[in-house]
């Protein structure tokens, strides 16, 4: 196992009587893309704000790159880059000025600063737009500028709070392309929060599911899916309606869902063989047109651990 670059132990945080984060433990290994997944209000932003020294730690302990966050916030600030949830850019500055400003704030010497800005603008493909005003940029470009800003000082960890929220598919893909590139080429550990299942599934090495301030599950996407272990059959029959009634009574099946393409059979355990399924249908003169075995998705993992779908709470 590689060394943990972020280590969180017994972290709790409350606003008055509302508990936002409730005694959580997790660690992030160096060089990984780590997704903190959960619905809005789950405690993601509170956790990130505690990690990046914006909130004072009430209970528990965080170390980032071996530095205790509560004891030495300034040393932590030197090791991190942050991209906040909403665009946090000065509309009246140009891209170049925005990055110059932050380079100066971090006391980067002039030559290093300019070299680094040029390098980063090339990565996020904004080199030819350096003199454009922030107010004239698209949402995706603004996000790219913010990512470049977060990387100015060669941080050990880059924090991204919902990096792709509100962006169209194309822009989302592009942002992810940059994130993967900097993770790989600059060996930056990436800690991000998201409520997009597909993104967490597709891009992260490690996923941590948080809900109501508690960590529900933690691991790689495949290990999380394997842990819940339940497969799903997707079938198409000559009489879906009748078939669903018959199959719902099988002891191995927890429930049956109908969709436009046929039936989804959620198994209680993985002991229902395909042959048994076919047999129980043919007794009733129903022919099977199609049969697929589906592995669980991250959505299923989330439902398994929290008892609800993430999307239903997204806009709540």
């Amino acid at each position: 196992m590689k060394d943990a670059i972020i280590n969180v132990e017994g972290l709790s945080h409350s606003y008055g009587k509302t508990v936002a984060v409730d005694n959580i433990y997790f660690h992030v290994e160096e060089g990984q893309i780590f997704s903190f997944l959960g619905p809005n209000g789950a405690g993601k932003t509170t956790t990130i704000n505690l990690l990046i020294t914006l909130l004072r730690i009430q209970k528990g302990q965080i170390t980032i790159s071996g530095v205790n966050v509560a004891k030495n916030p300034d040393a932590v600030r030197r090791n991190i880059g942050v991209v906040f949830q909403d665009h946090r850019l000065d509309r009246d500055l140009t891209i170049w000025e925005t990055l110059e400003f932050h380079g100066k704030i971090h006391s980067l010497p002039k030559e290093t600063r300019r070299q680094r800005i040029t390098e980063l603008l090339n990565i996020v493909e904004l080199g030819d737009k350096r003199n454009a005003f922030i107010k004239n940029l698209s949402g995706g470009m603004k996000r790219s500028v913010e990512i470049a800003r977060g990387l100015l000082v060669h941080p050990k960890v880059l924090f991204l709070d919902e990096p792709t929220i509100g962006l169209d598919t194309k822009a989302r893909q592009r942002i992810w392309h940059y994130i993967k590139q900097i993770n790989r080429e600059e060996n930056v550990t990436v800690f991000l929060t998201t409520h997009y299942m597909d993104e967490a599934d597709q891009y992260s090495h490690e996923i941590c599911i948080i809900d109501k301030g508690k960590i529900m599950a933690n691991g790689s996407s495949s290990s999380l899916k394997n842990a819940i272990g339940k497969d799903i059959y997707h079938i198409k029959t000559t009489d879906d309606l009748k078939a669903s009634q018959i199959l719902a009574n099988l002891p191995e099946i927890s429930h049956v869902e109908k969709n436009s393409n046929g039936l989804l059979l959620y198994l209680k355990n993985n002991e229902l063989s395909a042959s048994k399924l076919v047999k129980s249908l043919t007794i009733h003169q129903i022919k099977l047109g199609n049969l697929n075995l589906l592995k669980p998705t991250l959505d299923d993992v989330f439902i398994y651990y929290t008892g609800r779908k993430i999307d239903s709470t997204v806009d709540a």
Binding site: I52, T53, L54, D74, A75, R77, R78, I80, V82, F84, D86, R88, L89, D90, H102, I105, H106, S107, R149
Partner: peptide
């Protein structure tokens, strides 16, 4: 108000 202050105070300045 526009959150720019946050980007400044997470720097070691």
């Amino acid at each position: 108000q526009y959150g720019l202050m946050k980007t400044i105070v997470v720097s070691p300045m």
